[in-house]
Amino acid sequence: MNKKDWYSIPNILSYIRLMMVPFFIYYYITAEDRNDFYIATGILVASGVTDALDGYIARRFDQKTKLGTLLDPVADKLTQLAVVAVLMIRWPIFIFLFLLFIVKEGFMLVENIRLYKRGATIDGAEWYGKIATIIFYLTMFVAVIMPNLSRTALYSIVAVASVFQLLSFVSYSKLFKRAHESLDNQQDEKVEM
């Protein structure tokens, strides 16, 4: 890994995003009034902006690095995990979304490792994964900025986010299955030759 990769602008933005996680947790957990929740929301928004910026800068100015391809998803998942975990403290209903998130992301990690060991990768997120992530972030944003949501509204947004996470999980399961089958077929063709 090149030393200057550690100091590329996209990677610095990912470091900043990682550093925002404990600040978000602190401000959300200790929030006592509306302004405190606004600060926590501001940190969450800043995290989202740095996420968008690091990807844009990496692509636009050809600053993609191996470190960045590891760092960016780690920062994303830690942020998402932190947000849903603190929301569970205030609203136990978030445990369903939390568990679904853990299962989906754990499955994807294992499958990506399996594919990598076979010399293949799935490059980037698919459209259904991106939509599920956007819905997930919108749900988190609404729950953080509106700490006095009605039970009906809360259950509704958690249900919508859970459905999109589940659809994304099923779609990625099919994608990984096809990828493994394709690799199996290639291997069978080599054996026949």
Rank of each mutant, 00 (worst) to 15 (best):
P10H: 00
A120F: 08
F23I: 06
M1P: 00
V49P: 02
V86M: 15
Y128Q: 08
A85L: 10
Q63M: 15
D72Y: 03
E111V: 02
Q187V: 09
L13Y: 04
L154K: 13
G48K: 05
D54G: 00
G129W: 07
G42C: 02
T50C: 08
T30Y: 13
A132E: 05
D33M: 11
V21I: 15
E192Q: 11
I122P: 07
L44H: 03
Y155H: 11
S171W: 05
S171V: 09
A153S: 15
D62S: 09
T79K: 06
V191K: 06
V158Q: 13
L18T: 04
M140C: 15
L183G: 01
E189L: 10
E192S: 10
I39P: 13
L87W: 13
A143T: 06
F141D: 03
N35C: 11
T152H: 12
A179D: 00
H180Q: 11
E126A: 08
K3M: 02
E105K: 12
V45Q: 07
I134Y: 03
Y155C: 00
Y155L: 09
V110F: 15
T69I: 05
S171Q: 11
F98R: 12
F37R: 07
Y27N: 15
A40R: 12
T139P: 01
Y27H: 14
M146H: 07
D123R: 04
L109E: 08
F96C: 15
Y56H: 14
Y56P: 09
A31N: 08
K104C: 15
G55P: 05
D54Q: 00
F96L: 14
Y137D: 04
G106F: 13
D62R: 07
S8R: 02
E105W: 11
R178C: 00
I12T: 03
K66L: 09
T69H: 12
T69N: 11
G124I: 10
L154P: 15
R17E: 01
M1Q: 01
F24D: 02
T139M: 11
G129P: 07
L183I: 13
D62K: 14
Q80V: 06
S173V: 05
G129C: 01
K104A: 15
A52W: 12
I135V: 15
M193V: 06
P22E: 05
V160P: 14
